[in-house]
Structure formats: structure tokens, C-alpha cells
């Protein structure tokens, strides 16, 4: 099956192709400027995941999975959480308390991307984590299914056929 035949109509595909880059950029902006303007890691991560959801809906599941397969997404997910935790633990050892701000020697300029100590790093970590995990949730709900292989053992499988047949 050729790629053009999958997914939604041509109009949707063309509009998606135009708009996807801007949405991704907007998501990254929301993450990076999270400590200055409304937003932050979680909303930005959701927007970034929204890009991949949009791609899945309009082009079928292969296109986003080629860019970001689920193993990599799972690893990014864990990586984001670990970075956040690492910032917390560094705060414990470089400063006094857990999650304390330890970048205090930075020039104190207001309204610059790198101005609020560890908060931008935390935002980046959260953005990574949330984006990857919401993408994973979507992909797992939409694409995989469980089949049983023998007694008590289960196996996760990629779904081969298209949409699930309704009763």
C-alpha cells in the first residue's frame, strides 16, 4: 500500500504539513519560556505530543513512528524524569536542601531564557517527559493490542490490520 492512500484526505495532509512545524516550534517555545510567561513543561509537552498525534491522525501511524519509535519515546520519558530527579539531588548536595536552587551565581537578568536558576532545566525535563509519555499513551492506545500466548502469558503486539472491526 502506498503512503498516499493512508490516512485522511489530501487537504488535511497538506494543511498538516504546513502547520506541523509551527506547532512544534510553539511547543518548544512554551517549554523554554515556561518560567517567564504562562506555560511551562507540562503544557509545552502536551503541545509537542499533539504534533505527533496530529501526524498519526492525518498520515497513519507509520510516519510519526518513523521519526520517534516507541522504544526511543520510552527512553526519553525515563530520561526526562531522571534529569528532573538529578536536579533535585544536585540541589541536595550543592546547596543544602533537596530541589534547592543551586545556580545562584548566574547573572541576574530578568526576562532572559536563562535567568531563573534550575527552573528552565526542570521545565525542559518535564517537557521531554510529558511529550514522550503522552505520545506513548496515544500510540499504545491506538496501535498495540494484547494477544494471549499460552497459559497466563501475554504478549504485546503491533496491530497488523487497520481499524478494529466493530461488532
Amino acid at each position: 500500500m502506498k503512503e498516499e492512500e493512508k490516512g485522511l484526505s489530501t487537504i488535511v495532509k497538506v494543511v498538516t504539513r504546513w502547520i506541523v512545524g509551527f506547532i512544534l516550534l510553539f511547543g518548544i517555545y512554551i517549554v523554554i519560556f515556561g518560567h517567564l510567561t504562562p506555560g511551562g513543561g507540562f503544557p509545552g509537552g502536551v503541545i509537542i505530543a499533539g504534533v505527533f498525534v496530529l501526524l498519526t491522525l492525518s498520515f497513519g501511524r507509520e510516519v510519526p513512528l518513523r521519526k520517534l519509535n516507541s522504544t526511543l519515546a520510552s527512553e526519553l520519558d525515563s530520561f526526562g524524569a531522571l534529569v528532573f530527579l538529578l536536579v533535585g539531588i544536585l540541589g541536595l548536595y550543592l546547596a543544602t536542601y533537596f530541589a534547592q536552587n543551586f545556580i545562584t551565581t548566574f547573572p541576574q537578568q530578568y526576562f532572559r531564557p536563562f535567568s531563573a536558576g534550575v527552573i528552565p532545566i526542570c521545565n525542559l525535563a518535564i517537557g521531554l517527559k510529558v511529550g514522550a509519555s503522552i505520545f506513548m499513551v496515544f500510540i499504545i492506545l491506538a496501535v498495540t493490542r494484547v494477544i494471549s500466548v499460552g497459559e497466563g502469558r501475554m504478549k504485546m503486539l503491533r496491530k497488523r490490520t487497520g481499524r478494529r472491526r466493530r461488532k
Partner: peptide, 24 residues
């Protein structure tokens, strides 16, 4: 909201698995 999202995702995935098992 984040917690609600987690619960919702888990509930939906369990519901899908239940549909596969019971067909309803």
C-alpha cells in the same frame, strides 16, 4: 489535571483490554 490525565489514560487502556477480552 496531571493526575486526572494519568487515571484517564489507565482507565481507557483497561477498558480497551476489557473490550478485547469480553467483546463488550
Amino acid at each position: 489535571i496531571v493526575i486526572g490525565f494519568g487515571i484517564l489514560a489507565l482507565a481507557v487502556s483497561i477498558a480497551i483490554r476489557i473490550y478485547e477480552r469480553f467483546g463488550t
